[in-house]
Design a protein around this nucleic acid. Sequence first.
DNA 1: GATTTCATTGAAAACGATTACCATTGGTTG
DNA 2: CAACCAATGGTAATCGTTTTCAATGAAATC
Lengths: 336, 336
Amino acid sequence: MSAKIKDVAEWAGVSVATVSRVLGGGAVSIELRERVELAVAQLGYRPNLSARRLRSQHSKTVGLIVSDIRNPFFTAVSRAVEDVAYRAGMRVILCNADEDPDKEAMYLRLMQEERVSGVIFSPTGMTVRCFRADLYEFPVVMIDRDGPTGLTDAVVLDNRQAGKMLVEHLIGHGYRKIGGLFGKISTTGIERHAGYEAALAQHGLPSAVRFVAPSTEAAAAAVRAWLAEPDWPDALIVSNGLLLLGAVHALTEAGLSIPDDMALAGFDNDVWTGLVGHGLTVIEQPVYDIGVVAMEMLLARLENPSMAKRKVVLNGTLLPRASTNCRAGLAQTRAT
Amino acid sequence: MSAKIKDVAEWAGVSVATVSRVLGGGAVSIELRERVELAVAQLGYRPNLSARRLRSQHSKTVGLIVSDIRNPFFTAVSRAVEDVAYRAGMRVILCNADEDPDKEAMYLRLMQEERVSGVIFSPTGMTVRCFRADLYEFPVVMIDRDGPTGLTDAVVLDNRQAGKMLVEHLIGHGYRKIGGLFGKISTTGIERHAGYEAALAQHGLPSAVRFVAPSTEAAAAAVRAWLAEPDWPDALIVSNGLLLLGAVHALTEAGLSIPDDMALAGFDNDVWTGLVGHGLTVIEQPVYDIGVVAMEMLLARLENPSMAKRKVVLNGTLLPRASTNCRAGLAQTRAT
DNA sequence: GATTTCATTGAAAACGATTACCATTGGTTG
DNA sequence: CAACCAATGGTAATCGTTTTCAATGAAATC
């Protein structure tokens, strides 16, 4: 059994209050402070965080609920959240909800039991629609997906604009039959789709879309089915990295050339996107920044709970590469 | 302020002990049990985990200390650890130690303060050499890297054998000048290097190695420097996914063809390895299994602390692909 | 020199659960 | 009918901290 504060106090010949003050940076004479520090070192004393949290009523812990840590987007975000959190003296509890509203509810309940200081959460469309922030005693910062404005803080990408940007890039490179493949569970897919439709409508071009479950396999299957139909698009926009990989698999196994048989563009600058052929054109999200901003917003909210809710909208940047037949992209890839 | 157990007791007209028994599955008459459950539901009561942990002296929490969650190897492992942990009613605290012994020590101290039930840890070579398991009150399971046998439980890959396997694959495909690029911080790099040397020695072939810091950029720089020398190998073995990516970058930017100018093989079946050219030959680690086994070992150890220490050695599987000019690999890639 | 002020320190009361121990009840048995 | 027992509920101690409050003594003010 490890040493308790009482042992330290006895060893140093002071009261437990004094030890606590030394640890917490209170006012203690230099002499006692040294005696206590020596005792702490000699006994190898480590405070019990459960006791501390119970008494002081703040956990210094944040919950991070993502859909799947294996998605490079979320690993980058979580790394950023952790960096900022640990630097601020807070711990992080990570949960994978697998885009499943039941699991989300379960983890939210768990966060209450932990009495976390706050939660950073990337919810499904389902949960976002019926989320009642007032049910929880901790502030929530939504990331990637956003709910009805003003309910919680949020940091998201300008998905609509990014969707438009991708379509316009393709139009600018001469493509006219531009298909879209979007995730059907998250709100990001919906918004990117909206941008896609808006850009096409603006140019008087027809749209052709498929909505799929959020998995590489589902995307591959959808593209496979599409290729079996008589009439495919000559360019395809895919709404996130996981789905994009599925599309690549389906096109490769069909022996089709990118971009000659079908151009391809998508979201998320995952490492592999630079390595398919001469590179895939993608919208790069500021993944690390998203995590940093989310955690900083949470810290600010804890500092000042009554502050008006904020929504930070970040912009993606277009990385033109060879998969959309972009000469700039080709040149860049060769040079790199 | 949320409801406490006392409020529930008053609401239901019973004592706090009865409420606690209902929650903990003790012996309570059916009638009172129903009254309590109703009260819990109506008040939205959630037990305070800090209080529970303080009193019951077990945290039901495990620490997971990895070097970087952005490394796909560790994301897969961590996902597995979490799945098993949450299924066993335990929470996971994740820490990134960045291959830095100081950070490792800091997080280990944090784990003590949290009074975690156990820790799963992927230490640097430095920490592994001077790790004193008896300093900590929780059991530790080492993953990926292993310390002196018998000190802690461990689950690792048979790195030596995997290194040999890769060399023999290359020799079998006619390569004779086989270089090696290994990480210099972790023990995995050392062991894989040992297997590499052993296999070459067995065939009477010369070795040529470089050791680098564990980053993609360091690997790219090393390969770049190597290519500037007059005499490079005609095949290169790289000791992990991060470094392998660096090698690919360096070779690509030098305009060299894989495998015509240089064959390439490595470790970790990260998604992108299947997408470079017609695929990179790699040793695939059973990443998810490693996490599952590690967490299960930890649970077993908690169940029975006096059990003899175990070390589980898993085998990698060779995925022959086009980067080593492997016809089997080529065919497979085309078919997939 | 007496009174006020101030910085230190210690004693003890929380924090919110679990649980050992005791008291009550009603039924069964000798 | 007395006595014992099983089942159930309540009381209070406990976990290891932080924090309030009062006490102490030294310095400062008048």
